[in-house]
């Protein structure tokens, strides 16, 4: 199967007064049609910036996408999104790639009715008339589980609870039946009970529409039941990429291993496991420095001289499984040729 999106060697920097922030340092990944790709990492790892960079959504200035490709292909079409003009990429945004953001409270315009905020992108990209867009919106509101949708069309965001607002955000994201939906920590700001509903809703819509979902999160715990594949990011690079089961059972990057040890787990009986949680010692990398070594080396127990001298590329370690590490944790020594 051909990937719908191929990102190669993407570099994004922010030119702040305090210096250059090296936010994304050569990111590579593929996204396949209809799959769910989880992007995991702590704040500052570059997971959001990566997705924003693809569709020219980072604030510029100070941000700037400085290199790489993002080939978006569907049907016969294939285009490098990074080469498109703002006016061209604009139609990809919302039309082909939808977004769900973290905070549904601040992400909706407080002065516009929720209906008009959904209908807006339909008139923009699908050329609907106002009444067409309205009836489609009402239908869509019902589909995302908002009761009494006819009347709710004219409601303002502050009339809605957080969960309901996130449903509205989801409706906005899928309004034009996009090929890809990027969900940027869509459940972080919500109550735990609501989180599950939102996850279910996205999964249901994904099946209905066959859309690929990129699920950005800092929580490896929620990924398990959700994703097909996982991308682990650290210091503006992809450090590990694997099918979800592989990642949990056979992590190959010391950072991923550390992350997994830091998740509290419930065993089959619902009791918390007695195994002690571990924390990763040290602080996240200083993004003001240009990346010349493995970003994780300062915190890594396995680091050896090569890790301090060059940036490890993503090395194939299994089927669809890559890890950006010179150390072979399985064999317990430097990887061949290292």
């Amino acid at each position: 199967m051909e990937p719908i999106l191929q990102v190669r060697d993407m570099v994004t920097r922010f030119y702040s007064v305090d210096g250059v922030v090296h936010a994304i340092n050569g990111v590579n990944f593929d996204l396949y049609e209809g799959e769910t790709l989880a992007v995991v990492g702590e704040s500052g790892s570059g997971k959001s910036v990566t997705m924003m960079s693809i569709v020219n959504l980072i604030p510029q200035p100070p941000g700037k996408v400085e290199g790489g490709q993002a080939i978006f292909s569907y049907g016969e079409m294939a285009q490098d999104l990074l080469q498109l003009s703002e006016d061209e990429i604009r139609h990809v945004r919302g039309g082909q790639i939808g977004f769900i953001f973290q905070d549904p409270i601040s992400s909706l315009n407080p002065t516009m009715t929720i209906g008009s905020q959904i209908a807006e992108s339909m008139t923009e990209h699908l050329g609907f008339s106002a009444s067409e867009a309205r009836s489609k919106t009402v239908e869509l509101l019902r589909n995302v589980g908002i009761p009494d949708s006819e009347r709710r069309f004219n409601a303002y965001p502050h009339h809605f609870s957080g969960g309901m607002r996130q449903r509205v955000m989801i409706a906005i994201a899928v309004a034009c039946r996009p090929k890809i939906v990027i969900a940027d920590e869509p459940t972080t700001a919500l109550d735990v009970t609501v989180q599950a509903q939102i996850v279910d809703l996205v999964k249901r819509l994904q099946e209905q529409m066959g859309v690929a979902v990129v699920w950005i999160t800092h929580d490896l715990g929620v990924v398990a039941g959700l994703a097909d594949r996982v991308l682990v990011m650290y210091g503006g690079t992809v450090v590990e990429s694997a099918p979800v089961d592989n990642l949990y059972e056979d992590p190959r990057h010391p950072y991923t291993i550390g992350l997994l040890k830091a998740i509290p787990r419930l065993d089959a009986t619902g009791e918390a496991e007695t195994e002690e949680l571990e924390v990763i010692e040290g602080v996240p990398p200083d993004l003001y420095q240009e990346l010349t070594l493995c970003p994780f080396a300062p915190r890594c127990g396995y680091a050896f001289d090569r890790c301090w001298a060059e940036v490890p590329p993503l090395i194939e370690v299994g089927v669809q499984h890559g890890a950006a590490c010179f150390y072979d944790v399985e064999r317990g020594g430097p990887r061949n040729g290292s």
């Binding site: 702040s16 305090d18 922030v21 936010a23 994304i24 910036v49 996240p284 200083d286 003001y288």
Partner: peptide
């Protein structure tokens, strides 16, 4: 956007 936040050093 989080990546743009500089890390606070000591």
């Amino acid at each position: 956007m989080t990546a743009a936040t500089p890390q606070v050093g000591f």
